[in-house]
Design a protein around this nucleic acid. Structure first.
Length: 260
DNA sequence: ATGACGTGGAATCCACGA
């Protein structure tokens, strides 16, 4: 089963780019971030016409996550547990049943957190504490599960073309990276780094200052797998070429192949 | 050294992003 994460930066602006990519890459599941749409306005038809089930968790203007899946999505839940007052749409879960295993899918859009310090950074770190709690529960369930999405975390210096430019940024601050590492250290496998080492692998290039043309990117879109999911992993790749197309998102898809 | 680009929503600019 081919499962992708893709921050599309606006579903209305990216409709053609996304459907073109679906037709070409034929993923079974896509975890989408930054749909920037309320649920009622999400254009379901182009995806349903292609055989995808659509589950959204949107809000007006910003954020918003969705799952597209060719197989039925069961037990869908919306919102990251742990704070009933949190109104930002950044988390959605569902279970997909494969040929041999079921897998819990968690799609996430982790807060950016800039500027540092400030309330937005506090929110990021608070959100990551809640993420850690949910991650612990997923491990305790001892079933294949994954958390995929835009983590807004540059895990290591090698994950940025110019790491020195990010040292004061919420995506690369020691506190951010430590919070991410705490989750990894619970027993998760970061899918891309399980197979590929070294610098030069990015999933985001800013629209500004010719970042794409200069390959000035960062790797911030990740899949974290429970041990039961990691045992089924086949490959994890970044579909870099998508960034060079017409009217692209500033992120590209990361694609996980897993033997479900 | 600075700014640069894009999206959505409201409104002819602003918030937000990374």
């Amino acid at each position: 089963m081919k499962i992708a994460t893709f921050n599309i930066n606006g579903i209305k602006a990216r409709l053609n780019a996304l459907t073109d990519w679906l037709d070409e890459a034929q993923p079974d599941v896509v975890l989408c971030q930054e749909i920037k749409s309320v649920d009622e306005a999400f254009p379901r038809e182009p995806f349903e016409d292609r055989g995808y089930n659509v589950e959204t968790h949107g809000q007006k203007g910003f954020n918003g996550v969705a799952i597209l899946s060719k197989r039925p999505l069961e037990d869908v839940t919306r919102g990251l547990p742990g704070d009933d007052t949190d109104e930002q749409a950044r988390w959605i879960e569902a279970t997909v049943v494969g040929d041999t295993h079921a897998c819990r899918l968690c799609g996430l859009y982790l807060p950016n957190g800039n500027p540092v310090p400030g309330p937005k950074y506090d929110y990021k770190l608070d959100w990551m504490k809640r993420l850690e709690a949910r991650a612990r529960d997923l491990l305790a369930d001892e079933m294949p599960a994954l958390m995929g999405g835009d983590y807004n975390i540059i895990p290591q210096a090698e994950d940025a073309a110019k790491p020195e430019a990010w040292v004061e940024d919420a995506l690369f601050r020691p506190e951010s990276r430590a919070a991410y590492r705490r989750i990894l250290n619970l027993g998760f496998t970061e899918a891309f780094r399980a197979q590929t080492e070294g610098p030069g692998h990015y999933s985001f290039w800013d629209y500004q200052a010719g970042a794409w043309q200069r390959d000035n990117g960062i790797r911030i879109d990740h899949f974290l797998l429970t041990p039961q999911a990691a045992d089924l992993m086949v490959s994890c790749t970044i579909d870099k070429q998508v960034r060079g197309r017409e009217k692209p998102s500033d992120h590209v898809p990361v694609v996980l192949e897993i033997a479900l």
